[in-house]
Design a protein around this nucleic acid. Structure first.
Length: 414
RNA sequence: GCUGAGAUCGUGUAGUGGCAAUCACAGGAGACUGUAAAUCUCCCGCCUUUCGGCUCCGAAGGUUCGAGUCCUUCUCUCAGCA
């Protein structure tokens, strides 16, 4: 196909930003809204590609920074791109490495998470710790490899070159994600830098696509990434700045808490062009994230939480999350969730999965990952159906009240 | 039977005259959101919501201002020898 990516809206839910659609790529299409499965190092941890496909995964997101370190972008290119390398035939996304400026920089060894807040944000964000592995400048970001200490330097241009070698279908522009501790002054500075980087990313991306075109290869798509943290005017400025440029779609980055999703995503999606897909970066650890994201115009999500939490024993059920390692499940011979249609729930009991965890048997990680990933993928699929059927709001209320309890669910139903 | 070594939290240990309880494992609970993550945090003698209180170093006795620690006897364990 000549176009890197084609997106069509199938149904727009009247009076809302919610919609269903179809993203078409050289590796096939994605029905949206869709949950993109986390496959950072060109593997969905503990799962084979067949298992990912069997649980309904339509697409996988890999990470440029991690693949640059190991095995290296040249090996990815020599293998014929990430799809061939990992034997995944369906569409792929790649993240730029921008997230690692945050996770290996300000967040490194700080215990910063979604609930971290501070009054002295600017001061904290401005101080570089000697132990952190990433430092940002206007030109790019310096990294220290966590594997062997190598000094690494990444720019918008080099990220695009790496991403084109990895050759996922959809790339993210190199961006700077600010810490939840950051104050407005720093958020503005990082957003301006992200915009400058977006223009540089787009330029280099187009040059690389021209090369693909001349060689008769598939074109690759690029999403611009909106920043601005929790500042309404900055989010709007960012959406306007990027929305006017020739990106194939948009990522919304820097969102940390479910409570932020409704506002942040709405501010941005009211401005971004309707005819391009919108990806919410890194959110999807709980059902509220998914319902709120879709309600305010998100087409695709990615999140590592379902697989990470699965490996740590936290499993989704339609009645809320459980920790399968709790002693109370030692003689519970029912499925993780009786209403779940995954391989694990069809074939194994809570007692057995708990046993595998307590005995440190690796099959437990796989069974738990299959279950959690299926739960999230299926939840987004069912949200898509509810939009097509016109009963999104009824479905949302029923789902969230069962999952969180009627009282807690109200926070997400306003 | 003889000789030697040993007995501290569920287990293995640290502590060798000065407020006992170190570390690890096992166990209990919580966290995790563009993966430094099969990781991290907390609890883990008894009572107490907290503050705190009470116990406690195999048993009994002795020396000492003071003993898990030194001495005696006993019980048990392990090793070697018979």
């Amino acid at each position: 196909m000549k176009q890197a990516l084609k997106f069509s809206v199938i149904k727009q839910l009247d009076g809302t930003l919610a919609r269903t659609g179809l993203i078409e790529t050289p590796h096939g299409s994605i029905e949206t809204p869709a949950f993109i499965v986390g496959g950072t190092k060109a593997t969905v941890k503990t799962l084979t590609p067949d298992q990912v496909a069997a649980l309904g995964g339509q697409s996988i997101l890999v990470n440029t920074y991690h693949l640059m370190l190991r095995p290296g972008a040249d090996i990815m290119a020599a293998a014929g791109g990430v799809n061939k390398f990992m034997n995944w035939a369906k569409p792929t996304f790649s993240d730029s490495g921008g997230f690692q400026i945050f996770s290996l920089g300000m967040a490194y060894k700080k215990g910063i998470d979604a609930t971290s807040h501070s009054e002295k944000g600017d001061a904290l964000q401005a101080v570089h710790s000697s132990s952190q592995l990433a430092k940002v400048t206007d030109d790019g970001a310096h990294f220290r490899s966590q594997i062997n200490g190598d000094k690494l330097y990444m720019t918008p241009e080099s990220s695009m070159e790496l991403q084109h070698k990895i050759a996922a279908d959809i790339h993210m522009a190199f961006d700077e994600l600010t810490s939840p501790l950051a104050g407005r002054e720093y958020i503005k500075k990082a957003m301006d830098r992200t915009h400058a980087w977006a223009i540089r990313s787009l330029k280099r991306h187009q040059e690389l696509n021209d090369e693909h075109l001349s060689r008769g290869e598939n074109l690759q798509a690029l999403f611009g990434v909106v920043q601005g943290a929790r500042e309404e005017d900055l989010r709007q400025e960012s959406a306007k700045f990027l929305g006017e440029r020739d990106f194939d779609g948009y990522g919304i980055g820097g969102v940390f808490e479910p409570e932020e999703i409704a506002n942040t995503v709405r501010w941005v999606n009211e401005i971004l062009p309707n005819d391009k897909p919108r990806h919410l970066l890194g959110m999807g650890a709980q059902p509220a994230d998914l319902f709120l994201g879709v309600q305010y115009g998100i087409d695709t999500f990615d999140c590592v939480a379902p697989t990470r939490q699965a490996r740590n024993g936290a499993l989704f059920t339609y009645d809320g999350r459980i920790n399968i390692k709790n002693s109370g499940y030692s003689q519970d011979f029912t499925p993780i969730d009786k209403d779940c249609d995954c391989y694990t729930c069809h074939n194994f009991t809570r007692a057995y999965v708990r046993h595998l965890f307590m005995a440190d048997e690796i099959l437990g990680l796989t069974l738990a990952s299959i279950h959690n990933e299926r739960f999230v993928v299926r939840t987004v699929d069912s949200i898509r159906d509810s939009i097509n059927d016109g009963n999104f709001f009824d479905y949302k209320k029923k789902f969230l009240e069962r999952y969180y309890g009627v009282e807690r669910a109200q926070d997400f139903l306003k």
